[in-house]
């Protein structure tokens, strides 16, 4: 337990950078959204139309995207430092996994609190929104909580997994990973181009028709797979 605490100490030693940075990012985004709302109000834009349109506002990704940085830094910067301090890879994965959960929960708390305020004030009094959007869910708060938590956690686990490929096989590993991703993309787009449009549209409709629960299960499954692959690769990862 104390050794897991050591890993958390590595991650949270820079408290300002860890916890203040998301709040600064959030502050900047809120200011920008506020300015948009002020301009919209000043120019007499229809508030309902603005509210409707802003459900696609992707500003919340400024917060969610932090998971990407956290995942990469965990393997790219912190691992070498931690191993030098005598922490084992197993301890590193357990402690960092716990850190991912704490950070995803923190991001979730910000988004959910933001959403509750946003809904209570009818879009910050200006009809604008950034938390109650399709990206983190426009359903009840608990759906937003689950969706946000899973997106943030998936980002961290996936990027830590890519980082572990780098630690394990260096540039060669990343090249292989890029190659596989490229082949998959070509296959998907190739099928999209070759197959009759009706079939492609029907497939998209079927995919879009899946309920929220199915999509969340897919997201949760991807997160678990990423986390497992990350843990396995890290067991033999070397410092670069």
């Amino acid at each position: 337990m104390q050794r897991t605490g050591n890993v958390l100490r590595v991650h949270f030693a820079d408290r300002k950078g860890t916890f203040l940075a998301p709040l600064i990012v959030l502050g900047i985004v809120v200011i920008v959204i506020g300015l948009i709302g002020a301009v919209a109000t000043a120019t007499g834009t229809d508030r309902e139309a603005l509210w409707e349109g802003m459900q696609y506002n992707g500003a919340v990704w400024a917060l969610l995207g932090m998971g990407i940085g956290i995942g990469f830094a965990t393997m790219g910067q912190h691992l070498s430092f931690a191993l030098g301090m005598g922490i084992t890879r197993r301890e590193w994965v357990i402690g960092s996994g716990l850190m991912f959960v704490i950070m995803a929960a923190s991001i979730t708390a910000i988004v959910v609190i933001g959403k509750i305020i946003e809904l209570a004030t009818s879009g910050w009094g200006m009809g604008v929104r950034m938390f109650d959007t399709v990206h983190t869910g426009t359903g009840p708060w608990w759906q937003t909580a689950i969706q946000t938590f899973l997106i943030a956690l998936a980002g961290m686990c996936f990027c830590a997994m890519i980082g572990s490929v780098w630690n394990r096989w260096g540039k060669t590993g990343l090249s292989w990973l890029g190659g596989v991703a490229l082949i998959l993309l070509v296959l998907v787009f190739g099928i999209g181009i070759i197959a009759p449009w009706e079939q492609v549209l029907r497939l998209l409709e079927t995919l879009m028709g899946f309920g929220w629960g199915v999509w969340m299960s897919v997201l949760a499954g991807s997160t678990v797979v990423s986390a497992i692959v990350w843990a396995i690769l890290t067991r033999r990862a070397e410092v670069r």
Binding site: N6, A13, D14, G17, Q77, H78, S80, G86, I87
Partner: peptide, 23 residues
């Protein structure tokens, strides 16, 4: 280690804090 990479944003105080807890 020679050329030890420290996490972005770290100060020497952060390194000492971590080392104090670990050793």
């Amino acid at each position: 280690q020679e050329g030890q990479v420290y996490p972005d944003g770290f100060t020497p105080e952060h390194v000492l804090t971590v080392a104090r807890g670990i050793h």
